[in-house]
Simulated assay, not measured.
Amino acid sequence: MKWTGARYTDKPTVEVRTWIDAPPERVWALVADIGLMPSMSRELQSVEWLDGATGPVVGARFLGRSKHEAFGEWATTSHVIECEPGRVLAWAVEDPADPTAIWRFRVHAGDGGTELSEWMQMGPGRSGLSPAIDRMPEKEQQIVFVRMREIEQNITLTLDRIKQLAES
Rank of each mutant, 00 (worst) to 15 (best):
Glu82Val: 10
Gly128Ile: 13
Val93Asn: 04
Pro96Asp: 01
Ala53Gly: 08
Met122Thr: 03
Lys139Ile: 08
Arg149Asn: 09
Arg42Val: 11
Asp98Tyr: 14
Ile162Val: 15
Ile133Arg: 03
Leu89Tyr: 04
Phe145Asp: 00
Glu167Thr: 11
Trp119Phe: 08
Asn154Val: 09
Arg126Ile: 10
Gly55Leu: 08
Glu15Gln: 11
Glu150Gly: 14
Gly72Phe: 08
Ala29Pro: 02
Val31Asn: 01
Val47Arg: 04
Pro56Asn: 05
Val144Asp: 00
Gly125Trp: 13
Glu82Asn: 07
Ser127Gly: 15
Trp91Gly: 12
Glu73Phe: 04
Ile151Glu: 00
Thr100Met: 13
Glu140Gly: 09
Val88Ser: 06
Arg65Tyr: 03
Val80Gln: 02
Val27Met: 04
Thr4Leu: 14
Asp111Lys: 09
Ser168Pro: 00
Phe62Asp: 03
Thr18Gly: 03
Trp49Val: 15
Gly113His: 07
Phe62Thr: 08
Glu152Asp: 01
Gly64Met: 12
Gln153His: 09
Arg42Asp: 13
Gly112Ile: 12
Thr13Asn: 02
Gly123Trp: 11
Lys11Arg: 12
Leu30Gln: 00
Gln153Val: 10
Phe105Met: 11
Glu43Pro: 07
Lys163Glu: 03
Lys163Met: 11
Leu116Val: 09
Thr100Ser: 15
Ser41Cys: 12
Gly110Ile: 05
Met122Tyr: 04
Glu82Lys: 06
Val57Gly: 04
Asp160Ile: 10
Pro131Ala: 13
Thr4Trp: 12
Asp134Asn: 10
Ile162Tyr: 03
Glu15Pro: 01
Trp103Arg: 07
Thr9Asn: 10
Val16His: 02
Asp160Gly: 15
Asp160Glu: 15
Thr4Ser: 12
Leu165Asn: 00
Cys83His: 03
Gly35Glu: 04
Thr76Ala: 08
Arg106Ala: 12
Ala29Asn: 02
Gly110Ser: 03
Ala29Trp: 00
Gln45Cys: 12
His79Phe: 09
Phe105Asp: 02
Thr114Gln: 08
Val88His: 10
Thr18Asn: 02
Thr18Asp: 03
Leu157Ala: 06
Gln141Glu: 02
His68Asn: 14
Val27Trp: 01
Leu159Pro: 03
Ala32Ile: 05
Met37Arg: 06
Arg161Cys: 09
Pro131Asp: 00
Lys11Phe: 05
Trp19Phe: 15
Glu82Pro: 07
Ala22Gly: 07
Thr9Cys: 15
Thr76His: 06
Met136Ser: 09
Lys11Met: 11
Asp160Gln: 15
Ile143Asp: 00
Met120Ser: 02
Gly86Cys: 12
Arg106Tyr: 03
Arg135Asp: 06
Glu82His: 06
Leu44Met: 13
Leu159Arg: 07
Thr77Glu: 14
Ile20Tyr: 02
Trp91Met: 10
Ala109Asn: 00
Phe105Leu: 11
Leu89Ser: 10
Thr156Glu: 12
Leu165Ser: 02
Thr18Glu: 01
Val16Gln: 04
Ser168Met: 07
Gly112Thr: 10
Phe145Lys: 04
Ala109Tyr: 00
Val16Leu: 04
Glu94Gly: 13
Lys139His: 13
Asp160Ala: 15
Glu94Pro: 13
Ala29Glu: 04
Ala166Arg: 02
Val16Thr: 05
Ala6Phe: 13
Ser39Arg: 14
Met1Asn: 03
Pro131Thr: 01
Glu84Trp: 06
Phe62Ile: 09
Gly123Tyr: 10
Pro96Ser: 09
Leu157Trp: 00
Gly123Cys: 12
